[in-house]
Nucleic acid binder design. Structure first.
Length: 363
DNA sequence: GTTGAGCGTT
C-alpha cells in the first residue's frame, strides 16, 4: 500500500567490506538476464583471455568457451555477471568494439538466449527441416505474434503426431530408422556406445560415424512412421535386423495397462528417488518425451520406480532432461551401458548416475 | 557466421 514497496531492490548490492553476497531476486530465474553470449571470438582465445576482456565491467560469475567435441573453440562463449547492470555495461562497451584475430567480423556481445528463445530456436530448426514454415511469414517486428504462431503450429503438429501414431515410442522408431538407413549406406554398424570393455573411448571424443541424416522424414516423431516398404511393420524392421542396441527393447511395447483391478495403474510418485547408485540422469531426450515415454524407454533394464521429465512450467515444454530410478544398481548400470550415447535423431542420449545430493560436501 | 551443461523444479 505505502509507496515504498521496493520489491525490485535486492538486485543491487553495495560492496562494503564483504565481497559479493548477491541475493538473486527470484524473478531472475537462473540468472539468464545477466548471462551474455559472446560471439566472434578468435578460435585460439582462452577463458582467461575472455575474462580479462570482461573483467572491467563487473564480477564475472562464470566464463566458458564453447567448444566442439574435439575441444576446438567455436569462437563463442558465455559470460555471466553478478548483475544485469554489469552485463549491460559490458555490452555497451564491448559489442562491436574490436575484431579478434581470425574472426570474420567484430566482437558480438549480447544477452544469451533465454530458455524460451532456445526452445523457439529448436522449433524453428525442426520446422525448417520439415519445410513447414513459409519463410515469408516471418515478421521481425511481430515477435509476440510470431512466437504465438509457432506455439500453435507446434501444438497442432504434436496433436497430429499423437493421432497418427498412438505409440509415442514411434518417435524413437522413426529416428532409429533414419539412423539405420544412414549406417547401411556407409556400411558401418555402430552400437550406441562401445561397451567399455578394454577400449575406453570417452563419449565426447568418440569418433563414432554419425552420418548426416539424409532423409528428412519423421524427425522427432512429427510425421507418421515411414511407409512399410517391404511388407514388414516398421517397428519390426528395427528389431529384426540384428543391430538393435538392446534385445530386451521390444518389451517396452508390451501393454502396461494390465493393471490389477483393485490397483490403480499409475502409482503417485511419492518417493521418487531410489537408493544410491540406482538413480539416472538423462539428457538430450527428444522434445516430445514425457514421463511415460521415459519410463518405457528404461523398463527393459529393470524395475523402474520413477521416471521424471523436467518441464518448463512457463511453456509446458520438456527441458529434454529427466531422471529414472531403478530399485537396484545393476539395472541402473545396465541402462547406462545400453543407453548412454544412444542416438536419437541428431542427438545422443546422455545417461549417467545422478549426482548424489551430498557430493563433495565442503564441510 | 554462433547459444554449453544442466542433476527430482513453482
Amino acid at each position: 500500500m505505502s509507496a515504498d514497496a521496493n520489491h525490485t531492490a535486492p538486485r543491487f548490492v553495495l560492496q562494503m567490506n564483504r565481497p559479493i553476497q548477491v541475493k538473486p531476486a527470484d524473478s531472475e530465474g537462473r540468472g539468464e538476464d545477466r548471462k551474455l553470449f559472446v560471439g566472434m571470438l578468435g578460435k585460439q582465445q582462452s577463458e582467461d583471455d575472455v575474462r580479462r576482456l570482461f573483467e572491467p565491467f563487473g564480477q564475472i560469475e562464470e566464463c566458458t568457451i564453447l567448444r566442439g567435441p574435439d575441444g576446438a573453440s567455436k569462437g563463442c562463449a558465455f559470460v555471466k555477471y553478478g548483475s544485469h547492470g554489469e552485463a549491460q555495461a559490458a555490452i555497451n562497451s564491448l559489442h562491436g568494439s574490436q575484431t579478434m584475430p581470425g574472426a570474420s567480423s567484430s566482437l558480438v556481445v549480447k544477452f544469451a538466449d533465454t530458455d524460451k528463445e532456445r526452445t523457439l530456436r529448436r522449433m524453428h530448426q525442426m520446422a525448417g527441416q520439415l519445410g513447414i514454415f513459409n519463410p515469408m511469414t516471418i515478421q521481425f517486428g511481430a515477435y509476440g505474434a510470431y512466437t504465438q504462431a509457432i506455439m500453435q503450429q507446434q501444438a497442432a503438429l504434436m496433436a497430429a503426431a499423437q493421432g497418427t501414431c498412438l505409440n509415442p515410442m514411434a518417435a524413437i522408431a522413426a529416428a532409429q530408422m533414419q539412423q539405420m538407413a544412414a549406417f547401411n549406406v556407409s556400411g558401418l554398424v555402430a552400437a550406441p556406445m562401445t561397451p567399455s570393455s578394454g577400449t575406453s573411448t570417452p563419449p565426447g571424443i568418440s569418433t563414432a560415424p554419425v552420418p548426416s541424416i539424409a532423409t528428412p522424414i519423421g524427425v522427432n516423431g512429427f510425421s507418421p512412421l515411414p511407409p512399410q516398404t517391404n511388407g514388414q511393420p516398421a517397428s519390426e524392421t528395427i528389431y529384426t535386423n540384428g543391430i538393435h542396441p538392446y534385445p530386451a527393447y521390444p518389451a517396452a511395447y508390451a501393454p502396461i495397462s494390465q493393471a490389477f483391478p483393485q490397483q490403480a495403474p499409475i502409482i503417485p510418485q511419492q518417493q521418487r528417488e531410489g537408493p544410491e547408485g540406482c538413480n539416472l540422469f538423462i539428457y538430450h531426450l527428444p522434445q516430445e518425451f514425457g514421463d511415460a515415454e521415459l519410463m518405457q524407454m528404461f523398463l527393459p533394464f529393470g524395475n523402474v520406480i520413477s521416471a521424471k521429465v523436467f518441464v518448463d512450467r512457463a511453456t509446458n515444454q520438456s527441458k529434454c532432461f529427466g531422471f529414472v530410478s531403478f530399485d537396484n544398481p545393476t539395472s541402473a548400470q545396465a541402462a547406462i551401458q545400453a543407453m548412454n550415447g544412444f542416438q536419437i535423431g541428431m542427438k545422443r542420449l546422455k545417461v549417467q548416475l545422478k549426482r548424489p545430493k551430498d557430493a563433495n560436501r565442503p564441510y
